[in-house]
Design a protein around this nucleic acid. Structure first.
Length: 878
RNA sequence: AGGCGCGUAGCUCAGUUGGUUAGAGCGCAUCCCUCACACGGAUGAGGCCCGCGGUUCGAGUCCGCGCGCGCCUACCA
């Protein structure tokens, strides 16, 4: 047996066990075992963006608690680590960190090496796509190390031999395989269509990545002419799109405008003839009840335009600037082309915000309406609160820009996708509603193409037509057996590389996939879908998907989509959702708010066990305020475990030395039987809680009973176990201490893996199974041989009397060891019977004079079992 | 504007299918260095369970209506 230190030093202990676990391969998945014995976790691959905060620690601990329990009930755990290192966050981070931008037209420079610039160096270097991707690789490798260090520090029981990165060959291959499979199934298509577009990132974005932000906008009231006489007043927040106006619409039932339907309006400044039409989406209550439709001011415009058959007048470019246009030529016809051109030239090349102001100025000038002498702008612009769509990572509002994009068909599968959601168990259950709402509310297919550089390329080329342009109707797909490919450097099947970009040859699809197109495949990535059937069958569908609730509409949704499309299955049986960490003002902790607490200092100050304890107290789906007080409680628990264990081990060592711990068959004393009985309940409750992923309830039950064990049982049993001769009473005490502590260590192991492992190693570990984390989760059958106590309330009766004795001493300001000269206990027959078998233990613990005790018939006080009268000795003998 | 969740001690949170006098920890107060532990321990004071109605013998718990908070959808005329 090892030397037991007198103080618990968490740094040393944690370091030791981190190394041991690695050496022992404690957390390794065994690929030879069948699916039924396996518990598979779809570990969230964190976005490798260099920022770590306590939110990460929080949710990853939740997974680990569940995993550690499953491991102890005998499951073979598949708990890999993935890294989400492709996509925009990485690109952006690399750009900022290294001061580079990607220009795909540049040739690769083999001598270029990524280097961090000084903080004051704001210069930007243009590099080729391949150089850029290499730079991303270097930066993410560093970030991944930081994450790995944190995870290991925290004691996550990940299998570090099983890792993937979403940009690695394996993941690119699976992503491309998925794409090709969807092509074969007809679930993917590419089309040129107005798409939500971020003007800074210069890429299309999907519905799920869009958020509405409140903005203070201005309503401009603008006069439009009506052909044949009269005029209209249009209220708009986007006067800069006046040149893109294709129609004016009002509600079909709106009597004010019914006479105008079928006529034409004439726009100010631009002099465009546009039809006045009825449209259901026009709200008579809003603005003037009549509005202009532009290409494109908002999603409604897009939808309406698609069914209108009217020409497209695109005036916003991919960079967010107003495009030039030739007025007088289709589709920019004008009753006064020269005036229109003059007006438009004023704003062409400006960003939207500037163009808006300039157009407003022009509208305020006399003669802004062709053929009119009046001014088009009526009154001052009126402030209005509007909600504007932004890319969630973007800083400027999205525009609708017609571009060619790849889409996955989801709109036509809503019913099936809802049904898939019903087959999955959500924890907490009400989170399923969020999924259902999201699916219900879908209004666009999933746009999976991004006009970026760092991502998984589409395995696609196009035939180059006689006009030298790609023929998008003739895509050439990569061979499935030959993935991954990069169409920019690889040659499509049946072609040679000298045909690249040549007439009659091929050209590469330059886009990369949405990062979710890859991370939606984390189960398949892990199971090696399509490349290793045997492994796939052992890992898919998975048991749990742990994640935060804010990405139900993205990660959970897309993963369900892919699993359903590829194999008609659900990707996992359970989704377990962690809440958020809130700062003390109850705001979500996030990098952008600057209220982030970094976890490293907490781990050092309070210990990994203490931080895990804090996370474990939060129930699934519940947001939790960041509260350092909870770390302290966790630390106190660890210390208590250490000290209580020291006590037990000192007793055991004194009695049996290095010999075997006494077995449960020696447990005979009534107090000990009562404790074992309580442990049966604890085991039962904790097990049931863990079986439904409710680690927080399990912790509460275990922790409460552990403190009771320390505060009451240990005090009651102490003197019996101190006895120097080998009596049945002492043997029973030692056997109970040994078994109960062993059970507690196992029950607590998922929560506080370091201190429990340390203590376990002193006396419980055996050579075959050295770790508490691979020991068996406690079961009631272990104490089958231990009889039930005669009275249900024995333990509580003992605690009650002892509490009164302690209270009396405390109120008298005496030490707890002070002698009780007289003790009178009055209670009912039932209660006296419950107490009597353990009275001796109580008297010893309370230091009651043997000849001063009377127990008599009576009634308890105020809901108590007993009336206890305590008389303290005048002086403490000796 | 709809939907979901929440509102319990100064703070952080438990409160199973409605059932005696509503719990824990932190914090606070007072005391105790007793051979596991002062990185302790004992004891104690703190509650109109958001409000108003209703169902019931009985409501923190169920129903309705409010109020407040968070989130998810929707909303650029």
């Amino acid at each position: 047996m090892a030397e037991i230190p007198t103080k618990y030093k968490h740094h040393e202990v944690e370091d030791k066990w981190r190394r041991k676990w690695e050496e022992w391969a404690t957390y390794r998945w065994d690929p030879t075992l069948p699916r039924e014995q396996t518990f598979v976790v779809d570990t969230p691959p964190p976005t490798v963006s260099g920022s770590l905060h306590v939110g990460h620690v929080f949710s990853y601990t939740h997974q680990d608690l569940i995993v550690r329990y499953q491991r102890m009930i005998g499951k073979n755990i598949a708990y890999p680590m993935g890294w989400d290192d492709n996509g925009l966050p990485t690109e952006r981070r690399v750009q900022n960190l290294l001061g580079i931008r990607c220009d795909p037209k540049l040739p690769y420079d083999p001598n270029w090496k990524p280097e961090k610039k000084g903080k004051k160096d704001k210069s930007i270097d243009e590099v080729s796509r391949r150089n850029f991707i290499e730079a991303c690789g270097v930066v993410t490798a560093e970030d991944e190390k930081a994450f790995e260090h944190l995870w290991r520090h925290l004691g996550l029981s990940l299998d570090w031999t099983d890792q993937y990165a979403t940009i690695d060959d394996h993941c690119r291959g699976i992503s491309q395989l998925s794409f090709l499979d969807l092509v074969e199934r007809g679930e993917v298509y590419n089309v040129e269509s107005p798409t939500m577009w971020d003007i800074d990132f210069k890429t299309a974005v999907a519905q799920a990545e869009v958020e509405d932000r409140p903005r203070q906008g201005l309503f401009y009231d603008i006069r439009f002419g009506v052909e044949g006489g009269g005029e209209l007043l249009i209220a708009t927040t986007r006067p800069e799109l006046l040149g893109a106006c294709i129609a004016v619409v009002a509600h079909p039932d709106d009597e004010r405008y019914q006479p105008l339907f079928g006529k034409f309006a004439v726009t100010p400044l631009y002099g465009a003839r546009v039809p006045i039409l009825a449209a259901e989406h026009a709200d008579p209550e809003k603005g003037t009840g009549i509005l202009m439709v532009c290409t494109f001011g908002d999603a409604m415009d897009v939808e309406w335009w698609k069914t209108s058959g009217l020409a497209l007048k695109q005036l916003i470019g991919r960079d967010g600037r107003v495009l030039p246009a030739n007025f007088g030529e289709a589709p920019f016809e004008s009753v006064d082309a020269a005036a229109a051109q003059r007006a438009h030239d004023e704003i062409a090349g400006l960003f939207v915000s500037k163009a808006k102001k300039r157009v407003a100025e022009l509208l305020a000038e006399a003669g802004s309406l062709p053929g009119w002498t009046g001014v088009a702008l009526v009154g001052d612009p009126r402030p209005t609160d509007q909600m504007v769509k932004y890319y969630e990572k973007g800083d400027r509002a999205l525009e609708f820009v017609p571009t060619r994009q790849w889409f996955v068909r989801v709109l036509e599968h809503k019913d099936e996708l809802l049904a898939q959601g019903d087959k999955i168990q959500w924890h907490p259950a009400h989170m399923k509603t969020r999924y259902s709402h999201w699916v219900d509310g879908l209004n666009q297919d999933w746009c999976i193409s991004r006009q970026r550089y760092f991502g998984v390329p589409f395995p696609v080329w196009y035939v180059v037509g006689a006009d030298g342009e790609p023929d998008f109707a003739q895509p050439i797909y990569a061979d499935k057996s030959n993935l991954p490919v990069d169409p920019l450097t690889d040659t499509p099947p049946g072609y040679s590389d000298d045909q690249r970009d040549a007439v009659g040859g091929f050209t590469a699809e330059p886009d990369v996939m949405d990062t979710w197109a890859t991370s939606s495949l984390t189960p398949q990535i892990q199971s090696h879908w399509g490349t290793d059937d045997e492994r796939h069958k052992k890992l898919f569908p998975m048991d749990i998907r742990p994640q935060a609730h804010d990405i139900i509409r993205t990660w959970a949704f897309y993963t369900i989509v892919k699993a359903w499309m590829h194999s008609g299955e659900i990707p996992w049986y359970h989704v377990v959702l962690s809440g958020w960490i809130l700062d003390p003002d109850r705001k979500k902790m996030s990098k952008s708010k600057g209220n982030v607490v970094t976890p490293d200092d907490l781990l050092v100050e309070y210990s990994s066990d203490a931080v895990r304890y804090w996370a474990a107290r939060a129930r699934l789906g519940t947001d939790t305020a960041f509260d350092p007080a909870v770390f302290k409680i966790g630390k106190r628990l660890s210390t208590k475990i250490f000290n209580a264990s020291r006590f037990v081990f000192m007793q055991l060592e004194a009695a049996v030395g290095d010999g075997d711990n006494p077995g449960v068959e020696s447990i005979t004393e009534p107090l000990d039987l009562a404790l074992v009985e309580r442990m049966r309940t604890v085991i039962d409750q904790a097990t049931r809680a863990f079986d439904s992923f409710d680690y927080a309830t399990a912790l509460q039950v275990i922790e409460d009973s552990f403190w009771s064990f320390c505060d009451h049982y240990l005090e009651l049993v102490k003197l019996r176990s101190y006895a120097e001769e080998d009596t049945p009473g002492r043997r029973s005490a030692l056997a109970t201490l040994s078994w109960t502590l062993g059970a507690f260590l196992r029950l607590l192991a998922p929560f506080v893996p370091f201190v429990t492992e340390e203590v376990w190693s002193w006396r419980f570990a055996d050579d075959g199974r050295p770790s508490v984390h691979t020991a068996d989760w406690p079961v009631i059958a272990e104490v089958e041989a231990v009889p039930h106590p005669d009275h249900e309330e024995t333990y509580q009766a003992a605690v009650e009397v002892l509490t009164v004795i302690r209270g009396t001493k405390t109120k008298a300001q005496k030490s707890l060891r002070w002698l009780v000269s007289n003790l009178e206990i009055r209670g009912s027959e039932r209660h006296r019977e419950a107490l009597s078998p353990v009275l001796e233990d109580v008297l010893r613990a309370g230091n009651v004079a043997a000849d001063g005790v009377t127990v008599s018939d009576g009634m308890g006080l105020e809901g108590q079992r007993f009336e206890v009268i305590v008389e303290l000795a005048d002086e403490m003998p000796e």
